[in-house]
Amino acid sequence: MTYKLILNGKTLKGETTTEAVDAATAEKIFKQYANDNGVDGEWTYDDATKTFTVTE
């Protein structure tokens, strides 16, 4: 399945997608991606749209 991440960081904003077997796997990938890019904030997930959002 395709999952989407919306980044609302102070210095980085944008979107990315990943292919993952489930939401938990996608979350791990996205949290590593956000960490690698210096984004740390409040996480939400919308199962209907398979979208994670992180807001600093």
Results as ranks from 00 to 15, higher is better:
K28E: 08
L5K: 00
N37S: 08
Q32K: 14
E15F: 14
T55I: 07
A23V: 12
K13R: 15
G9Y: 07
T51P: 00
A23W: 12
K4W: 10
Q32N: 07
M1N: 14
A24V: 10
G41Y: 03
N8P: 03
T11G: 10
D36V: 10
D46S: 06
L12G: 07
E19Q: 15
Y33S: 02
T49E: 06
L5W: 03
A23D: 06
V21T: 12
G41D: 02
E15S: 06
K4L: 09
G38K: 08
D22K: 03
T17F: 14
D40S: 14
V54F: 05
T25L: 07
D47L: 08
Y33M: 05
E56I: 09
N37Q: 14
T55K: 07
F30K: 00
K4N: 06
G14F: 13
T49F: 05
T49W: 05
V54R: 01
L5T: 01
L12V: 12
G41T: 02
T51L: 04
T51A: 04
K28M: 12
D36E: 11
Y33T: 03
D40I: 13
N35Q: 15
G41V: 02
A23L: 10
K13V: 09
D46G: 02
I29T: 08
G14K: 13
K31Y: 06
K28W: 11
T2Q: 11
T18F: 06
A34W: 03
E15P: 04
I6L: 08
T17M: 10
V54W: 04
F52L: 01
W43A: 01
T25H: 13
F52I: 01
K13G: 05
G9Q: 04
T49Q: 06
D36H: 09
T2A: 07
A24K: 12
A48S: 12
F30A: 01
L12P: 04
E56Q: 11
K4M: 07
T44L: 07
Q32P: 02
Y45G: 00
T2D: 05
D22V: 03
D36K: 11
T53F: 09
K10W: 12
K4D: 02
E27L: 15
Q32M: 12
A24W: 10
A20E: 03
K4Y: 13
A24N: 09
K13Y: 14
L12K: 10
W43G: 00
N8T: 08
K28H: 10
T44P: 00
W43R: 00
Y45P: 00
E42R: 09
T18V: 15
T49H: 07
T55G: 05
Y3I: 01
V39P: 02
K13E: 07
K13F: 10
A20M: 03
A24D: 10
E42A: 11
D22H: 04
E19N: 13
G14H: 12
N8V: 12
